[in-house]
Computed example of a mutant assay.
Amino acid sequence: MNTKKKPLFIAFSSQKGGVGKSTFTALVASTLHYRLGYNVVVFDTDFPQHSLTKMKVRDLAMVMENEHLKKLAYNQFMAINKKAYEIVQHKADSVLERAIEYINTSAIPIDVVFFDLPGTVNTPGILKALAGMHHIFTPITADRLVMESTLIFTQLLQDVIMKKVETSIKTINLFWNEVDGRERTPLYDVYNQLIAQLGLSLMQSQVKNSTRFRKESENDSKTIFRSTLIPPDERLMKACQLDLFITEFLKIIQL
């Protein structure tokens, strides 16, 4: 692992709420930090929800209340000898400067900085923050409102920010989320064709629909899926094909 490279700035971003951007930020950050050995930091600029900050508070409480998860977290710490990644709250309009300051003063080399950004371009500083990303990943679902909002947003990024503004963006990647494996709807074919016609990039991997994305660990749980402290269980990842998504994600960002 080459830690001499400049850290990558990555955002799961969308103009439509409820499509999973905060969830994917936590899932991918935890996989990279705890399982794959990279050093990660997350900046939570999604005011006023601050979903990831609140998630970490719940995760800490859950681990302390669940003896199995407490042992799992302890064994993880002993095995990898590293602390939980930090989640830093900050405003979107100056988050790039704060991230650079964090990297320069960090006692450990940072490999990836994830940004959980607000879900509207009307937020002050959001376009500047997006222009500072190296890679943007946008979850989509086969829903007309989601697709219309997403395609307009993605074209804005490609046609305005990448062409008319000084930018760090290398890739913008759409990916299917909440795909029902039992149902083959013509909507996917229609939207795939439209995405191709617009010249947008669509990932090959599709993340299957799962209640796990909306459900955090319970008091008596012995497995973890969505957590800021422990990586998602590998069997659960495979069940919804998140493992395939992670493989393609790493190939795209070339970490």
Rank of each mutant, 00 (worst) to 15 (best):
S201I: 11
T53W: 08
V28C: 08
D180Q: 10
I87M: 04
D59Y: 07
R184P: 01
A142W: 05
T141N: 10
S210N: 06
K5T: 11
V113F: 07
F213S: 03
A11E: 02
D93C: 08
D159P: 03
A84G: 13
I136L: 11
M1C: 09
K54R: 12
F114R: 04
V165Y: 11
L145H: 11
G125K: 00
G17Y: 02
L200R: 01
L198S: 06
F115D: 03
S14G: 05
F245S: 00
Y74Q: 15
I169R: 03
S51L: 01
Q254K: 13
G18T: 05
A11K: 02
E86P: 03
Q204M: 12
V112C: 04
I126L: 10
T141P: 00
T3Q: 10
I230S: 05
L127K: 14
V19R: 04
F213V: 07
T23P: 01
T45Q: 04
K54G: 02
R226I: 14
M64E: 15
A196M: 11
T138F: 05
L157V: 12
A79C: 07
F175D: 02
I140V: 14
S30E: 06
I224F: 06
Q89G: 08
I169C: 02
I100Y: 09
A29G: 12
L236T: 04
F47Q: 05
F213H: 02
K251H: 11
I252H: 05
K54T: 05
N81F: 11
F77M: 14
F175W: 11
T211V: 11
N173W: 00
E218Q: 14
V112K: 01
A73D: 12
F249S: 03
K16W: 05
N192F: 10
Y102A: 10
I224Y: 01
Q206D: 06
T150M: 06
N104A: 11
L60H: 07
K6I: 07
I224K: 00
K5V: 08
D59W: 03
M147R: 04
N2E: 03
D44F: 00
L198V: 06
T138M: 06
L69V: 09
L127D: 14
L229M: 15
A73R: 15
R214D: 15
V207M: 01
K164Y: 14
K164V: 10
V28R: 01
R214C: 11
N2P: 00
M133Q: 09
Q241W: 08
N177S: 14
E183P: 07
Q89N: 13
S205L: 03
D93M: 08
F114C: 10
H68P: 07
E65V: 13
Y188P: 00
A99D: 04
H134E: 13
